[in-house]
């Protein structure tokens, strides 16, 4: 078995299994901790609050966006760009079809490149703020930088592999994907899942109080 076969085969299976098991362990571990039921008489619905809380925090409030607009634009650019290139890149759809047997219409090549550029720009902005903003500089640690750099390398090697000129370039991309998958559940990248719980708890608390800030 060659390098590409290894990173697309056994290593990928191991990485995917670690990702799925550890991420599930962490999310269910959080849920299993439980919480005492709130028995104060509610003014509104906690369930509706849970949902509203999740939706509401997708959009920043104008007053908070004014000064940190660059961070917010960077955040949106990165997350939306990554979402588009991951789920609508032709190679990714082929890859998913190979494993899950399902597929959908991919983006044209120019769309993929545009989404990648937007995601890159966003990620770079977010990373630069890690050391240019005094608060972020104070609170950032190794995990924040490793997560950023791993994601950057996954995206960069993905672009290098786009031409399919050398199989080994695809292998390098998959190697970084495997490393990223293994790192993900042990890092703050997990916020991709835990945000639902965090926003939901706050939304439910506010919902019981009859508001949705």
């Amino acid at each position: 078995m060659g390098f590409v076969g290894f990173v697309e085969g056994p290593l990928f299976y191991i990485a995917a299994a670690i990702f799925a098991l550890a991420a599930a362990w962490r999310v269910f571990g959080l849920i299993r901790m439980g919480r005492k039921p709130d028995i104060s008489p509610p003014k509104g619905s906690a369930t509706a609050g849970f949902i509203k809380g999740n939706l509401r925090h997708f959009l920043p409030r104008g007053m908070f966006a004014r000064r940190t607009w660059i961070h917010i634009v960077g955040g949106y650019a990165f997350h939306l760009g990554l979402f588009v290139l991951f789920f609508f890149g032709a190679f990714h759809i082929d890859f998913i079809k190979q494993y899950l047997g399902i597929s959908w219409t991919p983006l044209p090549r120019w769309g993929f490149i545009l989404a990648s550029e937007i995601a890159f720009a966003g990620l770079i902005v977010l990373w630069v703020r890690r050391f240019s903003d005094p608060v972020m500089r104070l609170i950032s640690d190794r995990d924040d930088h490793i997560g950023t750099w791993l994601t950057f390398l996954v995206m960069l090697t993905g672009c290098l592999a786009l031409q399919q000129s050398h199989e080994v370039l695809r292998g390098i991309h998959m190697l970084f994907v495997d490393i990223w998958l293994i790192y993900f559940p042990f890092s703050r990248l997990m916020h991709a899942f835990t945000f639902v719980l965090s926003r939901g708890h706050t939304g439910a608390t506010y919902g019981r109080k009859g508001m949705n800030p």
Binding site: R26, L30, M33, P60, F64, T68, H71, I72, G75, D133, V135, M136, I139, S140, D141, D144, R188, M190, H191, T194, F195, L197, S198, G200, H201
Partner: peptide
């Protein structure tokens, strides 16, 4: 725990 886990240290 969900709060402590979800913080991405964005400083916003």
């Amino acid at each position: 725990a969900s709060y402590l886990d979800a913080c991405v240290r964005c400083g916003l």
